[in-house]
Design a protein around this nucleic acid. Sequence first.
DNA 1: AGAGTTGGCATTGGATACATTCATCGCATA
DNA 2: TATGCGATGAATGTATCCAATGCCAACTCT
Lengths: 231, 231
Amino acid sequence: MTRSMTMTNTPPTNVLSTRIADELRRAILSGELSPGERIRQEELAEQFGASRIPVREALRILVTDGLVNMVSNSGAWVSSLTQDECSEHYQIRERLEPLLLRYNLGALTDADIARAGELVELMKQAPDLETFMRYDREFHWITYSRVETNSLTDLIEKLWNTTQPYRRVFMKLVRSGGIEVTHLEHELLLEAIKRRDSDEAESILHGHIRRTRIELDRHPEVFAHEFDKSD
Amino acid sequence: MTRSMTMTNTPPTNVLSTRIADELRRAILSGELSPGERIRQEELAEQFGASRIPVREALRILVTDGLVNMVSNSGAWVSSLTQDECSEHYQIRERLEPLLLRYNLGALTDADIARAGELVELMKQAPDLETFMRYDREFHWITYSRVETNSLTDLIEKLWNTTQPYRRVFMKLVRSGGIEVTHLEHELLLEAIKRRDSDEAESILHGHIRRTRIELDRHPEVFAHEFDKSD
DNA sequence: AGAGTTGGCATTGGATACATTCATCGCATA
DNA sequence: TATGCGATGAATGTATCCAATGCCAACTCT
């Protein structure tokens, strides 16, 4: 996984398949491609001026990321989640992200924490949804990515990515209501981190994710998209 | 993921790449291929009487499973874990398998539970290590696979698979000592399941995995294998 | 003699061309 | 009219061939 979330700009590889994969991932995460949308190999190949071979490899890379589903002799689609599956992803996050935070808590620098504090404020003043989501992502990710290695990090990045389209729709719906609670939770989390209080930080983070999941569970309309979902 | 663990024999697909992937996965899980071992595309292609294209796709499938690592313009290796990474995988399992068990607890049939009981006994009499590991896997998997769907199931299967080589070596080392505790834990777990006691079952399972992890942490020699590890 | 450079070889990455599969639609038939 | 069969076409799967990369050893130059 390219760890795009960590803001470590991976130097542009000259391997075509990974470049195509990177571009596709960006398109999916930005919402240009929607969950359930069909992906045609030949179309993509033409679009990139390449043959279908690197396109296929790119698709397989995205399968690894959980962003694409491929079915033999049938085709590839942007991954889509049912409401239950999305809820499941959130429950996994509830249990894993506090663990990852604990891993990192001792290693966070003062600069990390200062930046996290800035981001809490920036989120409050975010002019639009995309900006807010970018800040939110950076805020949490700062607290996750100090310790390097870590298949846990990759795993959680995948979970963020696969749920991102739904989070976007969801937040568009409930933009005004409940956002205050989110800011409060961020502040509490930041305070716990400053105190290096693992248990408290874990607890707040768990509740933060859990609350979002429960709200999301109340909005089935988020998952009523127009495309076939075949996964 | 082919869900091989669930004993649902996937009918042999006539798509070459998936057949090659299945065979490779089997070879890795059985120990015929060791962590860190180099995989040469051409060699494999010849071995299967195929071209390198489906071999490459097979390797990408195994990357998705976490069983293979690929590096651009360099090659592919059977995934290997450092001791820290393995410990990390176990910590993830500690948090996720209890959740999966909870998901399934209400749906388990009497036949499931009966079979689980048989397996507890069979494990006590297992003549060799491989047999024991197969029973152990089936025992836990029965309690995990009643509820279908579930990316959680796939995720946990991956974690079992990637740690399997080390579990094998580890159990070979400590075969005699501590196995009694394992049997006891299995019995307690089974009892909790019979009572449909989610909290207790979660707790026992958590401790079961945790105890194994801590023992594993005490045996660095398990991770001293002869191959290059480049992940 | 030692360090940097260059060439070749082994291996992976990609393009073209062909084979195969699957879904769809039309048509014949009960 | 409903059903089932078969042709058709669009998409994916695979083989073969060629290009590009990277490693390693031999060689040159100082």
